[in-house]
Nucleic acid binder design. Structure first.
Length: 902
RNA sequence: GGGCGAAUAGCUCAGCGGUUCAGAGCGCCUGCCUUACACGCAGGAUGUCGGGGGUUCGAAUCCCUCUUCGCCCACCA
C-alpha cells in the first residue's frame, strides 16, 4: 500500500477506534469460522472464552473494563494463533437488581409495584430493559471487545428460559429440588428470600444483652442475646445437657417476661456452656440453630415479624407494628424497668446484609424452594481435585474447594416479579391438590383436570446464569454448535462471584452436559483507588471507562489495565489523576504512531522479505550488525511475549513488546539506520525491510493489548490494505534462525560505549550540536569489532568528530570512563569545554563556596550558637557545611584536571 | 474462630527453585523543540528489598517468628 504521508504527528483515537470497530464488525471477523470448523483435525478444538453477562441495565464500570480487557487480549491472541474462537456477549436479567431499579423509578412517580399489579409491572420492566439494555453492549464495543454479536443472548430470552424450565423440572423429578419450610435469609427491603451467598456477612460492633428470665418455681435463669426483639418469639430455653449448673432445671419452665408465656427448659448439645451464661433463649422462627433445637424438642415456631421487619400481631400490643430496631430498644428498656436486665457487653459479631441493598437480613421461617446441593457438588469438587479445573491464581482453588465441601442447600425461590417464574402448578381442587412441575405451561391439573395455579415466586437470577455456558448455545436442543463450543476453555471474572456463578456453572455443566464448562478460571483482582478502597458508586471513587476511552482511547485504557496488573493482584487506579494511570498507554500509542509515520514516509513500495521463497529475499550477508541485532531482539520478544500470553502473564507480554518497540526499535535501531533511510549511506532498502518487518511483528504481538492503533498502522504497511486485518493476521512464529547471540552481545557493547560517551558529554554540559573526539582503548574483541566495522554508528550516536583507537589518554587533560568490560574511553577536556572560560567560571564558583564555608565554620565554632541552638538545628548546619566542603572538593578536582592556574 | 495472600525507590508494581536481581513505568533533577514523536530525546539521583532470628560459601529470593494491611469462610446465642 502506498504510504499515507499525511498522517498527523499526534495519534488521535477519537473516531478512528469507532471506524475500525465497525470495519471489523462488518466483516464478521469475530464470528466463529466455518472454514476452521470444517478442518479435518478433530483435536483442534475451538477456543471458547466465557463472558460474564453484565446486568442488563447496568452501566460499564472499571471492573468490566478490567476483565473485558483481559478476555479480549486472550481471545485475540488465540484467534491470531489460528484457532476458531467464540466469545459470546450477553446480558443477565439480574432479578433483584433490575426490579429495584424500576421500583425506584416508580417511587419517583409515587407508585409501588403493587399499585401496578404483577402483569403491568413486568411489562414496565421489559420496557425499561428495551430502552436501556442495549447501552452496555455498545459500551463493551467501545472497549474494542472482539465478541460475536450475532449470537448475543439475554437470560430471559425464550431459548434460555426453556433451558431453565428443563433444568428445574429435571432436578425436581429427581428430588434434587424440593420445597420446604426453613429458616432463610430474608431481605425486609427487597421483600424476598435470599441465598446464603446473597446475605453478605459483615463484622459488626454490636451488643450482647444479658437478661434474667424468672423461673416458674422461683429464681431466675440468665440468657444472652444480640437481638432482644426476638425474645417476643421465644418458645423455650436451652442448656447443655451435661452442664452441672443447669442440670436440675431441664424439664422445668420459665416465664417469658413481657409476654407471660410459659416456656420449657430443654437440654441440647448445640449449646456451648462456655459462651455467655451457658443458657440460650430459643426462637425457632427467627434463628437457624433455634429452629433445629425447636424441632428436636417440639417447641413451636412463633413468627413475630412481618415481611418488612415490623413486629407482628403475635406480640404484645405495645410492640405491634414497631420496626425491629425500635422494638429492640423498647424490649431492652422494659426489661431494664423490670429489673431483669443483667448486663450489656460490647460484642463483635457477623451480621448478614442484603448484597443488593445492604439492608440487615432477617433470618425468617418460610416456605421456599431449594436445590439439594451435595450430590451436585461432589463431581464439581472432584473436577478441581483431579486438576481438570484450574484456577488462576492457583490459591483461589482452595476457596472453591472449601465452599464445595461445606455446601448447603440453595434457596432458589425469590418473592419477586421479575425473573423466571417457578414452573410449578398447584391443583386447586380440594380432592386432588397435586403439585406439578412442568416444562410447558399448565392450564389444568394433569391428574384431575381441575383448575391450577402457578407458583407466585421467581427463580434466583443465578439459577439461569449458571446455565449460560450451554443455554446460550441452544441447549436443551442438541446442535453442532453446542457440540463444537462446549466445553469451553477460559472464564475470566471477578472473585466476588466465585460462588454465585462460577461454582454453580461447574455443577450445572457437569450435571447436564457431563463436562465442566471451562478448564481455566482466571479470577481478576479488584479495582481500587489509591487509598486501596474498592471503587464503587456509593463511595464516588469510580472511574468511568467510557470517559477514559473518550479522553485517552480504548488502547490506553487496555494498556493501563494489562501492564499494571500481575496475575490476580488488585488494580490500583487514581480517580483524581487519570493522567498518571492512562497517560502512559496514550503515550505508547502515540509513539507507535510516530514510528509508523517515520517508516511509512520512507517507503514508496513493497519491501523485500527477510525470509521465504521469493527471489528477492534478503541474504544474511547483506545485514549489518544493527540489522542482525534488531532481528534477534525481535525474535526474543516473540518468544517472551508468546510464552507470557500463554501463561496469562499479560503484563510481562505487554512490557516485553513495549521494551522492544520503544527502547530497541525506536531509540536505537531507527536512530542507527537513519543515514541509510535518508540515502546518506548504502543499504537503505535492507534497513527499510528490516525495520518494517520487525515493526510488523511487534504490532502483531501487541495487537491483543492495543487493537486499534496496531490495526491502523498495520493496514498501512506494505502489502496490506483495509481489506486485511491484523486481528486475523498470523501470530509471529519463533524463528530459531534469527537467534544471534554474537549480534546481541556486540550491539550491547556498542550501546554501552555510546552511553559512556554521552555521559561524559552530559557531565560537561556539552551542547547537543557540538562534536568531540574520543579515544578508546579496549581489551574486548566485541568493541574492537565495533570500532572496526561500526565506528560511523558510534560517531553518529555519540556526536563524535573523530574516533581514535589505541592507548587512552591518562585522566589528566581528558574526561575518562571505564566500561564493565574494562574498555577505557576518554575525551579531551578541550573538546568538552573552553578551558580558560571554564577555569574562570569554576574559580568564581569555588571562591564563593569557600567564602560560605568560612562563614559556616565561624558559626559552628561559636560556642554561643552550638550551646544555645537546638540540637537538630546545629546538626543541620553541620550537614550543610559537609555538603559545601564536598562540593568545593569536586570543583577543585575539576580545576586540577583542567590544569587551571592555582 | 478457621483458611489464604501481601509487605521491594515518593507512587503503582516486576523480580517465576539461591550465583549478571536490586529493576520498570510514573514522579523528581540537569540539558535539549536534534527535519517521527515535548504524549518527545539524552543524561542523572533515589531503596539497611516490613522487624528479628535461622539455614548456607552466598538470601529480596528458602525456613521460623513478630508487626501491619487485605481476602475468603464461619449458626457461639
Amino acid at each position: 500500500m502506498i504510504p499515507d504521508t499525511a498522517l498527523p504527528p499526534q495519534y488521535d483515537p477519537t473516531g478512528l477506534e469507532d471506524q475500525l470497530y465497525r470495519q471489523w464488525e462488518r466483516r464478521a471477523l469475530f464470528e466463529p469460522r466455518s472454514d476452521l470448523a470444517a478442518a479435518s483435525d478433530p483435536a483442534a478444538r475451538p477456543y471458547v472464552i466465557m463472558m460474564p453477562p453484565p446486568n442488563v441495565t447496568a452501566q460499564l464500570h472499571m471492573g468490566h473494563g478490567l476483565n473485558l480487557s483481559i478476555q479480549d487480549v486472550l481471545v485475540r491472541f488465540e484467534r491470531m494463533r489460528g484457532r476458531d474462537t467464540l466469545w459470546l456477549p450477553g446480558t443477565d436479567h439480574a432479578g433483584i437488581a433490575t426490579q429495584n431499579v424500576v421500583e425506584k423509578i416508580l417511587a419517583k412517580e409515587g407508585k409501588t409495584r403493587f399499585d401496578l399489579g404483577r402483569e403491568m409491572f413486568v411489562r414496565r420492566v421489559w420496557q425499561h430493559v428495551e430502552e436501556t439494555g442495549g447501552a452496555i453492549l455498545n459500551q463493551i464495543r467501545a472497549l474494542g471487545a472482539s465478541c460475536d454479536w450475532h449470537r448475543t443472548y439475554f437470560t430471559l430470552d425464550e431459548d434460555l428460559s426453556r433451558a431453565v424450565r428443563e433444568v428445574f423440572v429435571s432436578l425436581y423429578e429427581r428430588s434434587l429440588i424440593y420445597r420446604g419450610k426453613y429458616i432463610i435469609n430474608w431481605c425486609p427491603r427487597c421483600l424476598t428470600a435470599l441465598s446464603n451467598e446473597e446475605a453478605e456477612k459483615t463484622e459488626t460492633e454490636g451488643k450482647l444483652w444479658h437478661f434474667r428470665y424468672p423461673l416458674e418455681d422461683g429464681g431466675h435463669i440468665t440468657i444472652a442475646t444480640t437481638r432482644p426483639e426476638t425474645i417476643l418469639g421465644d418458645t423455650g430455653i436451652a442448656v447443655h445437657p451435661d452442664d452441672p449448673r443447669y442440670h436440675a432445671l431441664i424439664g422445668k419452665y420459665a416465664v417469658l417476661p413481657l409476654v407471660g408465656r410459659r416456656i420449657p427448659i430443654v437440654g441440647d448439645d448445640a449449646v456451648d456452656p462456655a459462651f455467655g451464661s451457658g443458657a440460650v433463649k430459643v426462637t425457632p422462627a427467627h434463628d437457624p440453630t433455634d429452629f433445629e433445637i425447636g424441632k428436636r424438642h417440639d417447641l413451636p415456631a412463633l413468627d413475630v415479624m412481618t415481611g418488612d421487619a415490623r413486629m407482628s400481631d403475635a406480640v404484645p400490643e405495645q410492640f405491634r407494628g414497631l420496626d425491629r430496631f425500635v422494638a429492640r430498644k423498647r424490649v431492652v428498656a422494659e426489661f431494664d424497668a423490670l429489673g431483669l436486665l443483667d448486663k450489656v457487653e460490647n460484642h463483635r459479631h457477623a451480621v448478614g446484609r442484603c448484597y443488593r441493598c445492604d439492608t440487615v437480613v432477617e433470618p425468617r421461617l418460610s416456605d421456599q424452594w431449594f436445590v439439594r446441593m451435595k450430590p451436585l457438588a461432589a463431581p464439581a469438587l472432584k473436577a478441581y481435585q483431579d486438576g481438570r479445573l484450574r484456577f488462576i491464581p492457583e490459591h483461589r482453588g482452595a476457596e472453591y474447594a472449601q465452599w464445595m465441601e461445606n455446601i448447603r442447600d440453595w434457596c432458589i425461590s425469590r418473592q419477586l416479579w421479575w425473573g423466571h417464574r417457578i414452573p410449578v402448578w398447584y391443583c386447586q381442587s380440594d380432592a386432588c391438590k397435586v403439585i406439578s412441575a412442568s416444562r410447558t405451561d399448565l392450564v389444568a391439573c394433569p391428574a384431575c383436570n381441575g383448575p391450577v395455579r402457578q407458583d407466585e415466586d421467581v427463580l434466583d437470577t443465578w439459577f439461569s446464569s449458571q446455565l449460560v455456558p450451554f443455554s446460550s448455545l441452544g441447549w436443551p436442543d442438541t446442535s453442532d454448535e453446542l457440540a463444537r463450543f462446549y466445553p469451553g476453555d477460559t472464564l475470566v471474572t471477578a472473585p466476588e462471584i466465585l460462588f454465585f456463578w462460577v461454582a454453580r456453572m461447574v455443577m450445572a455443566g457437569l450435571e447436564f452436559m457431563k463436562d465442566i464448562p471451562f478448564r481455566t478460571v482466571y479470577l481478576t483482582g479488584t479495582v481500587r483507588d489509591t487509598k486501596h478502597r474498592k471503587m464503587s458508586k456509593s463511595l464516588g471513587n469510580g472511574i468511568d471507562p467510557l470517559d477514559v476511552v473518550r479522553k485517552y482511547g480504548a488502547d490506553a485504557l487496555r494498556y493501563a489495565v494489562v501492564s499494571g496488573l500481575s496475575v490476580g493482584t488488585d488494580l490500583i487506579l487514581d480517580p483524581d489523576d487519570l493522567e498518571t494511570s492512562f497517560g502512559p498507554g496514550r503515550n505508547f500509542a502515540n509513539k507507535l504512531w510516530n514510528v509508523g509515520r517515520l517508516l511509512l514516509s520512507h517507503l514508496d513500495g513493497p519491501v523485500r522479505p527477510l525470509a521465504g521463497r521469493h527471489q528477492d529475499v534478503i541474504r544474511k550477508d547483506e545485514l549489518s550488525l544493527a540489522d542482525r541485532w534488531i532481528i534477534a531482539r525481535c525474535d526474543e520478544t516473540v518468544r517472551v511475549a508468546t510464552a507470557a500470553y500463554e501463561r496469562f502473564r499479560l503484563n510481562d507480554a505487554a512490557l516485553a513488546v513495549h521494551r522492544f518497540l520503544w527502547s530497541d526499535l525506536a531509540d536505537w535501531y531507527i536512530e542507527v539506520i537513519k543515514p541509510r533511510l535518508y540515502g546518506e549511506q548504502p543499504g537503505g532498502d535492507v534497513a527499510r525491510a528490516v525495520a518494517t518487518q520487525t515493526f510488523d511483528v511487534a504490532l502483531r504481538l501487541l495487537h491483543p493489548v492495543m487493537p486499534f492503533v496496531t490495526e491502523a498502522l498495520w493496514q498501512r504497511l506494505p502489502g496490506h490494505s483495509e481489506e486485511d486485518s491484523i486481528s486475523v493476521a498470523p501470530w509471529p512464529p519463533e524463528d530459531r534462525r534469527a537467534a544471534d547471540a554474537a549480534a546481541l552481545r556486540r550491539f550491547g557493547s556498542l550501546q554501552e560505549l555510546v552511553g559512556a560517551i554521552r555521559s561524559i558529554r552530559a557531565e560537561y554540559a556539552v551542547q547537543p550540536g557540538h562534536t568531540v573526539r574520543a579515544r578508546i582503548a579496549t581489551p574486548s574483541p566485541d568493541i574492537v569489532a565495533v570500532l572496526r566495522e561500526d565506528a560511523s554508528i558510534v560517531s553518529r550516536l555519540a556526536k563524535l568528530s573523530a574516533l581514535e583507537t589505541g592507548g587512552a589518554d591518562a585522566p589528566e587533560g581528558a574526561a575518562h570512563a571505564i566500561l564493565p568490560d574494562a574498555t577505557a574511553v576518554s575525551v579531551p577536556l578541550g573538546d568538552l569545554v573552553d578551558i580558560q572560560k571554564e577555569c574562570a567560571r569554576l574559580g568564581v564558583e569555588l571562591e564563593r563556596l569557600n567564602g560560605a564555608i568560612r562563614t559556616q565554620e565561624g558559626k559552628l565554632g561559636n560556642q554561643q550558637f552550638t550551646s544555645r541552638a537546638p540540637q537538630e538545628v546545629v546538626e543541620r548546619e553541620r550537614e550543610k557545611l559537609a555538603t559545601w566542603r564536598e562540593q568545593a572538593g569536586v570543583l577543585s578536582e575539576k580545576r586540577r584536571r583542567l590544569g587551571c592556574p592555582v
